[in-house]
Design a protein around this nucleic acid. Sequence first.
DNA 1: GCAAATTAATGATTTATTCAAG
DNA 2: CTTGAATAAATCATTAATTTGC
Lengths: 187, 187
Amino acid sequence: MEEGLSGFCIKGSHVRGNNGNNNGGSGTKCGRWNPTTEQVKVLTELFRSGLRTPSTDQIQKISTQLSFYGKIESKNVFYWFQNHKARERQKRRKVSIDENDFISRDNIFNNNNKISSSKRFFEVKEYQSDQRVIETLQLFPLNSFDENEQEKLRFHANECRETSSFPYTINNPEMDHPPLDLRLSSL
Amino acid sequence: MEEGLSGFCIKGSHVRGNNGNNNGGSGTKCGRWNPTTEQVKVLTELFRSGLRTPSTDQIQKISTQLSFYGKIESKNVFYWFQNHKARERQKRRKVSIDENDFISRDNIFNNNNKISSSKRFFEVKEYQSDQRVIETLQLFPLNSFDENEQEKLRFHANECRETSSFPYTINNPEMDHPPLDLRLSSL
DNA sequence: GCAAATTAATGATTTATTCAAG
DNA sequence: CTTGAATAAATCATTAATTTGC
């Protein structure tokens, strides 16, 4: 998919002139943006101040100002924030060994008692609210459910399947679904 | 706080149903549903497949099948979808509108901080040569172009040439410290 | 000390989502 | 149902660090 790269900068010419901290030495390698320490410093500061996804205008301004420290383009600013944001998140996930993603996703369970009208069928029997238990994280490999699990799932899905005729009952606005044949592997 | 090492289910009493499959193994938190990774995976997959508001029947089937992976009730499935749907939407909104907390602090923006950058300006992809079309997108959705396009925000445009319209050695020995004001409030 | 070789960072692209408008 | 907007995740690719043999 490199078609669009037609007019592309010829590689080579690694001038590495970028010692110290400025890049504008006029060496000008066209390879890719190489931020100066000042630029990085400012960008980092902005990020720390809360900026995450700067608007076009902001990018423009930032770029313009940072250009004082050396060559830079708006796209560089855009990419910098994208990457930085993503990598910070990634880093943080790493630290927590993650797997907490789904946990946090359901923390709000208590707050949502607004299911008032949605009482549907399952009477909320003693629903011990709160009692947030931050269990230590899983200890098994993160990707433990690649195929094995899917196999397993299929296996049991089959078992359960016959008991279900799955009548599309009312209240089914978006029933463009397979009969809940939870076998993802068959999708 | 948790750690009632001596099995402590506050209310419920059901012992962690999380059978051997996983989920912390010793979870035993009876407080609330703690989905196993397999459960989350399946639910997410269903969601991704388009399911948003499962019907009662669907919920039951899902619940039944997922119970293989651990304790789960229909209400959990119901809530999961409700929450997941809401949070996805919320996330989308958040990001779209801004996602940055700085707005709340300083909304000294010129005009719009909502545009969130429409086309993000550089999407420039030019296919040179014969049949290829030069798909140059707009560079700036908004007016403003005081300075000529020194930057122009062309994507791959920056030829390898010395694009440094900025030698850095600006004739201004005194200007060691450019008057940059990159505080968010000034963007 | 110095480059070639190797590794770690991180800039730049591509891909896959989600929601919502048409 | 289809398509557009707008990312975030995943990935690719190049540059800077560093290691290593002389």
